[in-house]
Design a protein around this nucleic acid. Structure first.
Lengths: 231, 231
DNA sequence: TCACCCCATATTGTTGACAATATTGATATC
DNA sequence: GATATCAATATTGTCAACAATATGGGGTGA
């Protein structure tokens, strides 16, 4: 979480929201993402409020924010529960991600400055080190997120950054946790990152978009295949 | 609003939310979209609560939901205010819309069934009638929305539908209201819709995506140009 | 045995009061 | 006259009690 959170701090309006509501949102979000609260589980307001040591007011606001992020579903007079990520929904999410990150990569190829691209290369090298040192799935995932975050931020479109980093990415993180027994092709991903970086360094928007879309499409197929063979 | 709202009812989780919070969200949203509450204006909780005849609780939840839709900005301990849509932000919004609706059109070309396509043709003809009868900018805008809604829903990706119809589209509607003195090229848009429908009827995903992206890109240029020549 | 209804219970929705924080305007000082 | 400080005010954040609605179980009747 270390490195990715540092990234998140720069984009998330939440992390400089020091109110109870803001902190509760982050806490509840992380509990859902890392599976402390399981997929499909009902969110009982009085219980959760006590767990987080807040009253129901801030907790309800937190739940509402997570609803808008797609992590939680809510029915009037019935209550909220954590979403369940069946393969169909995961495929839809990746469809969306492909379009949005494809756009991000295209824009980043034109708009990132030299320092940002240098930082990206640095991230890639650090990531490669981790993988070579067999540093485990955890660092692998974080390195991957950092790389994607940097490109998204490089798009120079705050609205796009918000949609991806603040909303969709927590769903992706949740999927990652739920499928973490599955080692997600670290070598191939690294090669694809390398190619992508090449396109960005050469200021080639079309190629950057193509490679990013392909990269995400492959990740999607890889996860879907894993899920279908599992049970 | 008539026809578009009917469409909205089918997608919006809000419209079957008969709680005070849900109704207040819709009311506040419309007040912002149609300019009753101006861009940049501060949202004073006690005042608004009284205006809508609710207490601050439901009103705060409504505000939070509009924040997540991008209609409102919020700073901790300071308050919420309506977003201001300067040209730069509008351009970013259209960048996003181009990618997302392009995706929607591509998916719709494969996934829409015959009835849905027939309905789309029907909408187009009604729209054409309105334009020929000089029925005014209002019906023009609504007809345009209906057409786009139908395609988005035809994408068969609920997550995409949500992102576009529940979140981004209210921002677009807000822009429409603010720039309504500007007659938005009704004839050309109609022709572009016609071409798009042709691609859908022929089950041509690539062409559908291309035409949709171009359609939105042109709308963007048209609005940006209008805004830059205005003041 | 099954289906239905009704009541007790649990849970969500809403409210008004209280606490914490920011804004402001007035005063004092340079 | 300009700037800084501080207090009064307004506004947001939080809480706990109350109201409205859904859930679940026991009982009744077919």
């Amino acid at each position: 979480m270390i490195s990715a959170n540092k990234q998140l701090k720069n984009t998330h309006a939440l992390d400089d929201d020091n109110t109870l509501s803001g902190r509760t949102t982050v806490a509840l979000r992380e509990a859902i993402v890392n599976g402390s609260i399981q997929a499909g589980e009902k969110l009982n307001e009085p219980k959760l409020a006590e767990q987080f040591s807040v009253s129901r007011g801030p907790l309800r606001e937190a739940i509402r924010r997570l609803v808008s992020m797609g992590l939680v579903e809510h029915k009037p007079h019935v209550g909220a529960s954590v979403v369940t990520l069946e393969p169909k929904k995961i495929a839809q999410l990746y469809e969306l991600r492909e379009a949005l990150e494809g756009l991000a990569a295209r824009l980043a190829a034109s708009r990132m400055n030299h320092d940002e691209i240098a930082e990206l290369r640095h991230l890639l090298e650090v990531h490669r080190q981790h993988c070579e040192n067999n540093a485990g799935e955890y660092m692998q995932a974080e390195g991957d997120f950092d790389f994607h975050y940097q490109i998204i931020k490089g798009s120079g479109n705050p609205l796009l950054v918000h949609q991806l980093c603040d909303e969709l990415y927590h769903l992706i993180r949740m999927i990652r946790f739920q499928t973490s027994r599955f080692k997600s092709r670290p070598k191939r991903a690294l090669i694809e990152h390398e190619q992508l970086l090449f396109a960005l360094e050469n200021r080639d928007p079309e190629l950057a978009e193509l490679l990013m879309r392909r990269h995400i499409s492959r990740a999607k197929h890889s996860i879907i295949e894993f899920l279908s063979t599992e049970e």
